[in-house]
């Protein structure tokens, strides 16, 4: 690396570095907008931009598989889930003046201080370190798949179990506990009613129908 340090000038960026920097700026800007915008749905959309920018950064770092996974999972499903969450919790459309809580300034102080400290440490540590992107591609699908199914099979399978557990957990949490009409399937009176029929639901103690609706969609 010292040889690499000698061959690279600090202020003579390559094309990849310039591209990384520009995309990084866009990503950072989108992230900042995500956390400061007062329109909740916009925040989710800016999050898409941020996550997409990070995917591009992965590409620039020659980790193409990760980049596509990032696009698929984050942009494809996580953000959609978040949007559903916003809608299900009746998040206001448009500007909501109380999106930030009262300790905004304290949070800002902590964040800026952390940033300063970490940036200082990181730049101090990696001042003379360069990544060699010209060698063999590190994150091609083939390379990733090989290593994943050669060396990381066991954690991979464990992770699948974790995902299953999370799925079950989400279902259990979303269910309405203690509702006799709902537990045990749709046999009782509630089951005969059309899904989404709001009028009769008013005289029931706690409506079970909408919960099913949400589960079907989630």
């Amino acid at each position: 690396m010292t040889l690499a340090a000698a061959s690279h000038g600090f202020l003579s960026p390559t094309g990849v570095e310039i591209a990384f920097l520009l995309v990084g700026l866009v990503t950072l800007g989108a992230a900042v907008v995500t956390v400061i915008t007062r329109q909740l749905v916009h925040a989710a959309l800016w999050l898409v931009v941020t996550l997409g920018g990070i995917a591009v950064e992965y590409l620039l770092l020659t980790a193409e598989f990760i980049a596509w996974v990032q696009v698929l999972i984050y942009v494809g499903s996580v953000v959609v889930l978040l949007l559903f969450g916003l809608m299900l919790t009746k998040a206001p459309i448009g500007r909501s003046p109380d999106a930030d809580s009262g300790n905004r300034w304290a949070a800002l102080t902590v964040a800026v201080a952390s940033a300063a400290a970490l940036v200082w440490v990181v730049t101090d540590a990696f001042r003379t370190t360069w990544i060699d992107l010209d060698g063999a591609v590190q994150g091609s699908t083939e390379a990733s798949g090989r290593s994943l199914f050669q060396y990381w099979v066991l954690p991979f399978e464990a992770l699948s179990v974790l995902l299953l557990a999370a799925l079950v957990g989400a279902i259990v949490l979303s269910r309405r506990n203690g509702d006799p009409e709902h537990t045990g399937g749709r046999k009782p009176a509630g089951g005969r009613r059309p899904v989404g029929d709001r009028a009769p639901a008013a005289d029931r103690p706690r409506s079970g129908g909408p919960a099913r609706t949400r589960e079907d969609r989630g």
Binding site: S101, N103, A106, A107, T109, V110, A113, S114, A117, V121
Partner: peptide, 22 residues
């Protein structure tokens, strides 16, 4: 009772400690 306050204080403390250690 505000979790964010607690978390902020926790992080600020960790930060101070980390800086001190460095």
């Amino acid at each position: 009772g505000n979790v964010q306050t607690y978390l902020g204080a926790l992080l600020a403390g960790s930060l101070v400690l980390a800086v001190a250690v460095v």
